[in-house]
C-alpha cells in the first residue's frame, strides 16, 4: 500500500526522515513514471536511464517543490522534460521509421503485434508536442486538466493537439497493410 502524497511530503520535510520519505516517493511513482517514460523513449534500457535521472533530479530539487502544485503533476513534468531532453541529446527520435521498426523488433522487451508496431511507427511520425500529448492521453489516460498543469499549456490547445495527432495516426494506419 502506497503512502499518500501529503504523508510523503511530511516525511520529506523532516530531515531525520528524509530518506524514508524519498524511498516512499520512489516506491509509489517508479512504475507510473517508468511507463510514461518508456512510451516516449521506447527502449527499456533508455527508459531505465531516464527514470534514474528523473529520481536524481527529484532528490536534488524536492526541497524547492512548491506545495501548491500536485506532487504527481510535478513528477510527471520532470519525467516529461527529462524524456524530451534525452531524445534531443541522443537524436533518438527515430527519424527513419525503418530504424524504429528494426529496434523494436530486436527488442526482447517489446511483444507487440504488427498493428501495435504500426501504431508505434505512426506515433513516431508526430511532432514532439503532439507525440507527448497523444501518449499522455491515449496510454496514460491523464485528464486534460492535469495535462495542462504538467505541460504548462491550455486545455484547448491540448485538445487540439490530441485531435491533430489522432488524425495523423489514423491517416498513417490507413496507408499500412496491417489488419486490425
Amino acid at each position: 500500500m502506497h503512502k499518500e502524497d501529503s504523508e510523503i511530503l511530511q516525511l520529506l520535510r523532516n530531515s531525520s526522515q528524509f530518506e524514508l520519505g524519498f524511498s516512499a516517493l520512489v516506491n509509489k511513482y517508479k512504475e507510473p513514471l517508468y511507463w510514461h517514460i518508456r512510451r516516449m523513449v521506447l527502449i527499456h534500457q533508455d527508459a531505465d536511464d531516464v527514470l534514474q535521472n528523473v529520481f536524481i533530479k527529484v532528490y536534488k530539487a524536492i526541497g524547492r517543490f512548491r506545495e501548491e502544485a500536485k506532487l504527481y503533476t510535478w513528477l510527471y513534468r520532470i519525467a516529461t522534460n527529462e524524456s524530451l531532453s534525452f531524445l534531443r541529446k541522443k537524436k533518438h527520435s527515430f527519424s527513419n521509421i525503418e530504424l524504429l521498426t528494426e529496434k523494436l523488433t530486436e527488442d526482447p522487451y517489446f511483444s507487440g503485434d504488427s498493428i501495435q508496431l504500426a501504431l508505434k511507427e505512426a506515433i513516431e511520425t508526430l511532432p514532439p508536442k503532439q507525440k507527448q500529448v497523444f501518449i499522455m492521453r491515449y496510454y496514460d489516460e491523464i485528464a486534460y486538466k492535469d495535462m495542462a498543469d504538467i505541460l504548462e499549456s491550455s486545455i484547448g490547445s491540448l485538445k487540439a493537439s490530441y485531435h491533430h495527432a489522432s488524425k495523423k495516426i489514423e491517416e498513417y494506419l490507413k496507408t499500412t497493410d496491417v489488419k486490425v
Partner: peptide, 26 residues
C-alpha cells in the same frame, strides 16, 4: 472519426526485465 485507432486494443506491448521494479530502489 478515427475508427482504426479506436479499434486497436490497448494491450501491454512492452515488457520489462524480471523483478525490475522490485530491484529498482532509491
Amino acid at each position: 472519426e478515427f475508427p482504426i485507432l479506436n479499434s486497436i486494443e490497448k494491450s501491454q506491448d512492452f515488457s520489462i526485465p524480471e523483478a525490475y521494479f522490485s530491484n529498482f530502489k532509491n
